[in-house]
Design a protein around this nucleic acid. Sequence first.
DNA 1: ACTTAGTTGAGATATTTTAACAAGGGGACC
DNA 2: GGTCCCCTTGTTAAAATATCTCAACTAAGT
Lengths: 160, 160
Amino acid sequence: MNKSAIRATAPHDHTHCQSEALSRAESLCEERGVRLTPIRRKVLELIWNSHRPVGAYAILDHLREGDRGAAPPTVYRALDFLLENGLIHKLESLNAFIGCDHPEDRHVSQFLICTKCGAAVEIQDPAIANAVKKSAGSAGFTVGRLTIELQGLCPNCSKA
Amino acid sequence: MNKSAIRATAPHDHTHCQSEALSRAESLCEERGVRLTPIRRKVLELIWNSHRPVGAYAILDHLREGDRGAAPPTVYRALDFLLENGLIHKLESLNAFIGCDHPEDRHVSQFLICTKCGAAVEIQDPAIANAVKKSAGSAGFTVGRLTIELQGLCPNCSKA
DNA sequence: ACTTAGTTGAGATATTTTAACAAGGGGACC
DNA sequence: GGTCCCCTTGTTAAAATATCTCAACTAAGT
């Protein structure tokens, strides 16, 4: 079984996931010369609170709990920044966002979403991407963005 | 090149697509003992006005042009019915709906969406579905709903 | 200090979707 | 034909998601 699937769907020291994601984001932003401002950092941190995708307004609520009064554009702007820099992904079938654990390289990924516990796992199977590209090619389509999301039950939840 | 890709992205006698879709829907609903009421039929007809996915409010606007005063729930209920019966599909990455040209059998499909002309083509490549299923399986996931959407350029638009 | 580009604040508004409840309409059964 | 019930629709409201606009601020370079 896939390593990130285990991490995401089984109990684990999640603080570690979160702090590692944050420090990677920091060095990556520095490298690229873009600014991981306090708001952006906070939003990323909130997204990394779990392996479950979060909606923009859930993030907004958490932001408001703290000191800052925030409005929707604040969150969406932070999300845009994080998306552009590959630090998070958007799950179209849920209108929700999830952290990316290898933002360093641009990549095409797929998502496995557990409808029971809500966890989502990012996988990267070249076979999937290739199958889609091949099929698109034979239909004469030029490939741009790819959205591949599966909803089902994670290993843990399908046991129960 | 795939036949429905040609039909959807090149000029053609679209009235034919539309009327065939409607008559298929009628016989299918009769077969299943469900009611293709005037509203539902009208919504399906509007969706089949083109091969471009339509948003719920675009449909609503068209409905209102006619005699009926309609409210959002009217449209969404019709859409639910059509979705349940496989007569249309929802494109999650666009929040829009498109007609299905072979609603008779339950199927897993993928969509190729042209970001330039807006056309969308439904394809069914078992290789894609299988690749996803295989990958999900090896991550321990049970397969439920599958969302696969590609955005790119259709044959026509990539020529230009 | 000055300028500029990028970022945030604030309020409003647009878009998409659902909830809740009343009312209508068509068939099955008596 | 009447009556009951289920499915469908009307209507109002509101929840959930996302964007626009314009002003104020901040950081970084000159």
